[in-house]
């Protein structure tokens, strides 16, 4: 400890201590903040700048200022609105499904037995398989010509289903593959959360003669609210950016049935070389995502406080 030198008046030394303390506190926040500012500030500024310009492809620098033109073009494009709609449908189907499945499976997987550890670790694999390979393997299994899926559901008298060629089923396919891939993430957090539930509360409830539904609705669920909220936000931020699965499994088709917004932005930028339009869409999506995330953060805080 460096002790203040006796010559200094006490007040000044206290100020020094306070300042160093403040600096120390900021020291925790600043590495992350500095790293993110250094890596993100210019790219975000560039994207916003490009979205108001005509991009000069020979330098990739913003050319002539065109005001809101790129935004108007984007808003006039029915493909953009379609992509937003498709993304909305996908999120509305996939997120609740993954949350419910994730927590349900966590309950099953948490049963204590010898193989529990292995089961939990193996459950990670779907997350690790590269999206291109995952999409391709699912295509192999779902193809009506040589796939297993129709052979299996045929055994119980269903199908055949054109999983990838029918617009509604293609959306279902995307939701299924995405759920297969990301439910393990929810499960892992949920397993941990369920493990951490205080056992004494349940014993007390059992003595009071509570049935499992009462226990679930009045004890388990309220205790899980913060975790559910946090998992939901992390998954939401990941899902809203999904495009690799759609690219690999259906390439956005048939028609535009699975062309989620990030896939459309990718196509506009990297295929059609319409970087300015893609930037305008990215800004719109950024603002929309930020607004919804803020709503979710606020909502989760309110839920946390209520319980």
């Amino acid at each position: 400890m460096a002790s203040p030198t006796p010559r200094h008046p006490k007040a000044r030394s206290r100020r020094v201590v306070r300042l160093t303390d403040l600096a120390g506190r900021w020291g925790f926040m600043s590495p992350a903040a500095v790293l993110l500012v250094a890596t993100l500030a210019y790219p975000i500024f560039y994207t916003i700048r490009i979205s108001f310009s005509e991009l000069d492809l020979s330098t990739f620098s913003p050319g002539e200022w065109v005001g809101w033109d790129n935004y108007i073009d984007v808003l006039r494009d029915d493909r953009f609105w379609n992509a937003l709609r498709v993304t909305g449908v996908y999120l509305a189907l996939a997120l609740p499904l993954q949350m419910v499945l994730g927590f349900g499976i966590a309950f099953l997987v948490n049963a204590e037995w010898r193989g529990r550890g292995a089961v939990r670790a193996l459950f990670l694999i779907p997350m690790v398989v590269a999206p291109i390979v995952a999409g391709g393997v699912w295509r192999m299994m779902l193809d009506p010509l040589w796939g297993l899926a129709n052979a299996l559901i045929g055994l119980v008298g269903l199908g055949p289903i054109d999983w990838l060629g029918d617009p509604a089923w293609a959306m279902a396919t995307i939701v299924i593959v995405d759920t297969w891939r990301w439910t393990p993430f929810v499960t892992l957090i949920a397993t941990a959360a369920l493990l951490a539930l205080p056992g004494d509360v349940f014993e007390a409830a059992e003595i009071d003669g509570a049935n499992w539904w009462t226990k679930f609705w009045f004890i388990t669920l309220p205790l899980l609210v913060p975790v559910i909220a946090a998992t939901f936000i992390v998954r939401w931020l990941g899902a809203v950016k999904m495009f690799d699965i759609a690219l690999a499994a259906t390439n956005g088709g048939p028609g535009r049935a699975t062309n989620v917004i990030n896939l459309f932005i990718y196509e506009e930028a990297f295929r059609s070389l319409n970087f300015a339009g893609a930037a305008a869409m990215a800004v719109i999506v950024l603002v929309g995502t930020m607004l919804l995330t803020a709503v979710f953060l606020r909502g989760s805080r309110m839920l946390e406080e209520r319980h």
């Binding site: 493909r79 060629g165 029918d166 617009p167 088709g253 048939p254 028609g255 535009r256 049935a257 062309n259 196509e267 295929r271 059609s272 070389l273 319409n274």
Partner: peptide, 20 residues
Amino acid sequence: KSDAVQQVLADETSRAMSGE
């Protein structure tokens, strides 16, 4: 803008192909 044209054609062709 060849690839942009091709992308639009791909999109619309697929809509016709799937019956939309």
